[in-house]
């Protein structure tokens, strides 16, 4: 990226025909279509989404139905497995494939939900701190130090367990303990944008502070916030899995992936697929989201934007 900037400074004209003539939207589309990691992550995520939404509708399977005569059946590729239960069954004779399938919905809901909660808290604090500065900024910085110092997972465990676990509680607790990144990034982006000439020009033509924040500042921080958002979705998903694994998150019989792994732990040496399969599911989902986030960072990086130089 740095090198590109360097070349551009030395030789801006050679880029004229290539990128100068593209609109910002086309530029983003073009860059993303050239980014392998981003394309891979996005396609994988779309597939997982489709799987989570339509899988349970199309396939007639239940994650709760128990059949104690069919306990701990191995998956189809193991000896004794059958196509009826592709991933085998768990200790209560429930279809493991169906449980993992329904678990996708829980992970996605909590991941995106918690990241949204965190984003709303972090960005509103961050933009205010960056724009107004002064004592507002000092108060927000203080809040940030407090948030960073609190052991997030431990606090989340305590609150979720003692309030009484449910998906909504988990979403809000994880969201409320994960807004530091949003705050830091949106604050520094706002500070930077605030000092740019187009913001000064906007106040010179009579735009109000509110208009400036809505029209000039927030849209320009968007590219950085979306990157943090994707990364936070991944973090929230892993956090939920950890809480559920420790027994202080989603409660049985709801099929959360973390819970599946906790249940499979008892049989780790005999039925290892019970922990391996949901782990792979978690890993795939988080990898796809992270690859998309990394890609977005490259794509929206102002240093790689010819136009900004």
């Amino acid at each position: 990226m740095i090198f590109k900037t360097f070349i551009k400074r030395l030789f801006p004209r050679s880029f004229d025909n290539e990128i100068y003539n593209l609109r910002p939207k086309d530029l983003i589309i073009r860059k993303s279509s050239n980014h392998g990691g981003f394309k891979f992550g996005l396609s994988l995520l779309i597939i997982i989404f489709l799987f989570a939404i339509f899988g349970p509708i199309i396939l007639d399977v239940s994650p709760y139905e128990q059949d104690l005569t069919k306990r701990l059946l191995p998956p189809v590729w193991k000896e004794g497995g059958s196509w009826e239960y592709i991933f085998g069954t768990d200790g209560n004779g429930r279809d493991y494939f169906a449980r993992i399938l329904y678990g996708t919905r829980i992970s996605l809901t909590i991941g995106f939900g918690a990241a949204c909660v965190g984003m709303i808290i972090g960005v509103s604090l961050g933009v205010c701190a960056g724009y107004f500065g002064g004592w507002v900024d000092q108060v927000v910085s203080y809040l940030l130090t407090c948030q960073l110092a609190l052991p997030g997972l431990l606090l989340a465990m305590t609150i979720v367990f003692l309030i009484g676990p449910s998906i909504t509680v988990v979403i809000f607790v994880i969201g409320a303990t994960h807004w530091a990144f949003f705050l830091v990034v949106s604050r520094s982006a706002t500070q930077k944008i605030k000092s740019l000439d187009y913001v000064t020009a906007a106040s010179a033509i009579g735009a109000s502070k509110f208009q400036i924040i809505i029209r000039d500042i927030i849209p320009n921080t968007f590219s950085q916030i979306i990157v943090i958002f994707t990364l936070e979705v991944g973090i929230a998903i892993l956090n939920e899995a950890s809480l559920s694994f420790l027994g202080v998150g989603i409660q049985p019989p709801t099929p959360s992936w973390g819970l599946l792994i906790a249940e499979g732990k008892e049989a780790i040496f005999f039925q290892p697929w019970l922990i391996i399969l949901p782990g792979i599911a978690l890993f795939t989902l988080v990898v796809s989201i992270n690859m998309m986030g990394d890609g977005l960072r490259d794509i929206t990086d102002p240093n790689s934007k010819v136009s900004e130089e």
Binding site: G234, L238, A241, S242, F245, L246, G258, I261, K265, I268, F269, P272, I275, I276, G279, L282, F283, V286, V287, N290, M291, D294
Partner: peptide, 22 residues
């Protein structure tokens, strides 16, 4: 980096136990 970021910590632990025990 991408892998380590996406692997759940507790799961990595269990897989380690699986590998190093067996």
């Amino acid at each position: 980096a991408v892998t380590a970021q996406a692997v759940p910590n507790f799961w990595l632990g269990l897989i380690m136990i699986l590998i190093f025990a067996l």
